[in-house]
Design a protein around this nucleic acid. Sequence first.
DNA 1: AAGGTCCCCAACCGCCTTACG
DNA 2: GCGTAAGGCGGTTGGGGACCT
Length: 259
Amino acid sequence: MGRSPCCDKSKVKRGTWSPEEDSTLKNYLQKHGTGGNWISLPQKAGLQRCGKSCRLRWLNYLRPDIKHGGFTQEEENIIYSLHSKIGSRWSVIASHLQGRTDNDVKNYWNTKLKKKLMAVNCNPPSATASGAAAATTAATGTTTTTAIFEKTTTLRASTSSMATFPEPYEPINSTFPKFILEGSSNCSSSANNGSPFSQSQQESSPFRPWDESHHGVKGIPMDQYSYEVLGGIWFQEESIGFHSNEDLFSIFHVDSNKE
DNA sequence: AAGGTCCCCAACCGCCTTACG
DNA sequence: GCGTAAGGCGGTTGGGGACCT
C-alpha cells in the first residue's frame, strides 16, 4: 500500500514560483514562522501550493542566508572530499558549506563535478610528474585535479618501499578519496585489458602493467573495492606505495578527522 | 535567422525516518 | 508497541536559456 499524498494535487499550483508567490511565502514566514507545520502553511499564507513545495522553496531559495552563484574552489574541494567519504548524502555535505543547500550541492555534483572526474579518469596523466599536471589540467581545466595528480605522482616518486596498510585494514570508502576511483569503468575498454589507460600508455609506463594480479595497493583486501578502478589510478611499481591516508586527504585542504 | 541540441537547475516524486497520540 | 501524519532526503524530470549548425 502506498502512502497517501501530502496534498490534493488537483487543487494546488505546480511548476515555477512567481515573484508574487515568493513574496507571499517570504512575508508570511518572516512574520509567523512555519508554525511547526508546513502542510497547513500554504492555506494560512494564502498560497495555492503544496506544503512540501513551500518548504522546498523556502529552504532552497528564499531563506535569507542562502548563497547564490558559482561554487568556489574551496567548496569544490570540500564536496570532493566529503563525497569520497560518505557518498551522496547531500544534506550532510551541504551542512559543511555555508549557505549552500543539498539541492545546490547535488546539482553541482551531477552537472559539473561528476563530469570533471570522468574527464580525469578517461584522460589519465602520463607517468611523469610534469606530464601529470599538464595532462590533468588539459582534461579538466582545474587546479584541484591537477593537484591531485601532482600529489599522487609525488607519492609514487618519493616513496622507496612498498607501504602496507596497518592491521586491521580500514574500509576503503572511509579512507580513500573515492572520487578518484569512480568513473573509470565507464571509459575502460576490453582492448586495454579493462584499463582506462591505452595499450601504449601501459607499455611505456614505468609503473605496473594492467592486469588483475598487479594493481591495487599491497595489503588491502581486493574484495573491498573495484580493482579495475583502483588500478586505473594506482597502477604502480612493486616497490612504490604511499605512506598514509593523510597524504591523500591533505590534497583537499580538509582535515579528514573532522566530522 | 531558425531550428535543433545540450546543459543547468528549480521543482517534483516517492521512499524512509521521526514524532506524536 | 502500533498507526498515522509530517518532515527530510536523494533521485529524477522537464522548462527554458545557451550554444551549435
